[in-house]
């Protein structure tokens, strides 16, 4: 059994008034194994945010199923979602969603506080995490006092501190190089995922080249098969 199984996911945004409804995801199928680092790439409007929101159970799919570690997210009860999310998911939002009422430290603690953890345990976990993200000196600062990149690192720390089963991260990056660190890269266009599996056997530069080529192809309206 895979860690994450996505099959037949569809998402249609209903039109508000008058306008046409948008089919953001048409038919998405893929699986992710434990320990995998998967990148999903696509131009803006292709459906990345929609997909991640569904994976994080922040939004419901119109059709299809999402199964995370045996738990069916499409049928999960509203009341259980918050706890499920807290215990299993780490989510790094595109705009970070740090709370301006909290210092970075308290922002990172938030999911643990919600889970009722003791302060000593929270501190222990953060002490391990902070150096690797290079935010040790920033912990007492408020979000409006730090840069976008620093905020992003705090947001990553918040996603990791619960030791989640899966981390979903939406990041703006204009370099395809970042994605080339992934063990697998998928492309999304017009609500359909194109599996382009790059195994770790190709060199970094080879992988980087392939990703760039694919992105160019997609940008010109070409299809992958």
């Amino acid at each position: 059994m895979s860690l994450l199984e996505v099959s037949g996911v569809k998402k249609t945004y209903k039109a508000r008034r008058g306008g046409a409804s948008v089919e953001a995801l048409k038919n998405v199928n893929f699986t992710v194994e434990k320990g995998e680092y998967v990148a999903i790439m696509g131009e803006s409007g292709s459906g990345k945010t929609t997909l991640l929101n569904i994976l994080a159970a922040l939004d419901k799919a119109t059709a299809g199923t999402v199964i995370l570690d045996g738990m069916n997210l499409t049928t999960i009860k509203d009341a259980a979602i918050a706890k499920f999310r807290r215990d299993n998911l780490g989510y790094v939002f595109q705009d970070f969603n740090l709370l301006d009422t909290f210092t970075l430290e308290d922002n990172i603690y938030l999911p643990l506080v919600l889970a009722g953890k003791r302060h000593s345990e929270m501190k222990e976990r953060l002490d391990k995490l902070a150096p690797s993200l290079g935010i040790t000196d920033l912990l007492k600062k408020y979000p409006y006092e730090v840069s976008g990149g620093q905020k992003q690192r705090a947001a990553i720390a918040r996603a990791l501190i619960t030791n989640p089963k899966i981390v979903l991260a939406l990041m703006v990056t204009h370099s395809t190089k970042a994605a080339s660190h992934a063990s697998r890269v998928m492309f999304i266009k017009d609500g359909i995922i194109f599996h382009q599996i790059y195994k770790g056997n190709s060199t970094d530069t080879q992988m980087y080249q392939k990703i760039s080529d694919t992105l160019n192809l997609l940008a010109q309206g070409g299809d992958l098969k």
């Binding site: 918050a82 706890k83 989510y91 969603n97 999911p111 919600l114």
Partner: peptide, 15 residues
């Protein structure tokens, strides 16, 4: 907006 963020991070209505 803060509460909506907190809900995304796992806060329940009960909380």
């Amino acid at each position: 907006s803060r509460f909506s963020i907190m809900q995304k991070v796992g806060m329940t209505k009960e909380n």
